[in-house]
Nucleic acid binder design. Structure first.
Length: 356
DNA sequence: AATGCGGGGTT
DNA sequence: AACCCAGCATT
């Protein structure tokens, strides 16, 4: 009956299914011993879990914790009711510096939906959770498992890496079939454990601390003996990155005795955020003199930001979207970091003013 | 399937 | 400079 042990990559799927119980047991044991202590792991309050998950979307734990975003938010808006009752500017102000401000607006909206449509109680049904604003497959699974202990799968960047290595699976993790396989596998695992909460946390934390993108510490891995990866560092496979496009952006700087002129975005993106006002199109052929030139990256763009002197006559009236902001109100205003940095440099070089 | 959304950290 | 990070929504 015994046959020669096949090479790792040739092993078949059934072995994985049978190993799910053993694999998850080892992960949970490891996590109970080594798992880190985060504020959102000390509670099962859906609101507290939700806030952490939204803040952590595409944002590293250290950013959320070390700069005090989570603690300040929970102090200012301790529950759905207080958040729902807050104004949008209060909400955006509390999010200032975290980026992806759409998350804050969705969270605000979500709180209002909970109060108005769910009697102030967060729903327990994963499908209902998934339908709330700003909540996708990952966050729905995270809240279902972390807050309610339900056996719902999650796949984030960490887990995609861990699972593709465990199964030695080179299907691109950002392709439709790759995504499906990851979620199927994550579901299989979470249904094989009696502690979905610990299992989901363990998978993420394994990816964060052991099964790292580069130089994974396989010697320290609690599930090394379950892992089929031949060359862990070559996984996961991802599709090509979009090409970087260079973009020019021109704004201007006006300071009066009443403050700095800023423009509030009103379009479909960056709505509600403040920025240095755009240089009107008619001035872009022969722009006023340059006060500052800087570059920043945003998604697939490399933006060269030029800050110019005031175009035209400074006595003109400005559109509804523009406002003179007193200096002492600047720091609480939600403003994308590139503009904030530029503004700080402009004010510093003027010598007499400082932000904060 | 692609793209926009921001920012910061690591290598 | 490239890559990564507790993703989601829109098109």
């Amino acid at each position: 009956m015994p046959t020669p042990k096949p090479s790792k990559s040739a092993q078949q799927k059934p072995a994985q299914a049978e190993g799910a119980a053993a694999l998850t047991a080892d992960l949970v044991t490891w996590f109970r011993k080594e798992g880190k202590d985060y504020p959102w792991r000390r509670t099962h309050d859906p609101y507290a879990v939700l806030v952490s998950e939204i803040m952590l979307q595409q944002t590293q734990i250290a950013t959320v914790l070390d700069r005090g975003f989570y603690a300040r938010w929970m102090e200012k808006f301790p529950n759905f009711q207080t958040l729902a009752a807050a104004s949008e500017s209060e909400v955006l102000g509390a999010w200032q510096g975290l980026g992806y401000y759409r998350r804050a607006r969705n969270l605000h909206k979500l709180a209002q939906v909970i109060v108005s449509d769910h009697g102030g109680l967060f729903p327990r049904d994963p499908e209902v959770i998934r339908s709330l604003p700003g909540i996708g497959p990952y966050t729905a699974g995270a809240i279902s498992s972390f807050a309610f202990g339900l056996a719902e799968p999650i796949v984030d960047g960490n887990i995609a890496r861990v699972l593709s290595r465990l199964d030695n699976d080179a299907t691109p993790v950002d392709s439709t079939p790759g995504i499906k396989r990851l979620w199927d596998r994550a579901k299989e695992l979470v249904q094989a454990t009696e502690d979905p909460r610990a299992l989901n946390s363990a998978l993420m934390e394994l990816g964060q601390t052991i099964c790292k993108p580069a130089k994974p510490v396989c010697d320290a891995c609690p599930v090394h003996h379950h892992c089929l990866a031949d060359e862990p560092e070559t996984l996961p496979v991802k599709g090509a990155r979009p090409e970087i496009t260079e973009v020019t952006e021109r704004v201007f700087f006006l300071r009066t005795g009443q403050g700095i002129l800023l423009e509030q975005e009103t379009g479909s993106r960056r709505t509600g955020l403040w920025k240095l006002p755009a240089l009107p199109e008619e001035f872009s052929v022969k722009p006023p003199s340059v006060l500052l030139k800087t570059t920043y990256g945003i998604t697939r763009y490399k933006v060269t930001l030029w800050v110019h002197e005031v175009p035209g006559k400074p006595t003109q009236t400005w559109p509804e979207s523009h406002r003179l902001i007193p200096l002492d109100e600047l720091s609480a205003l939600p403003m994308p970091s590139p503009y904030r940095r530029a503004l700080e440099r402009l004010l510093a070089s003027s010598g007499e003013f400082r932000l904060e």
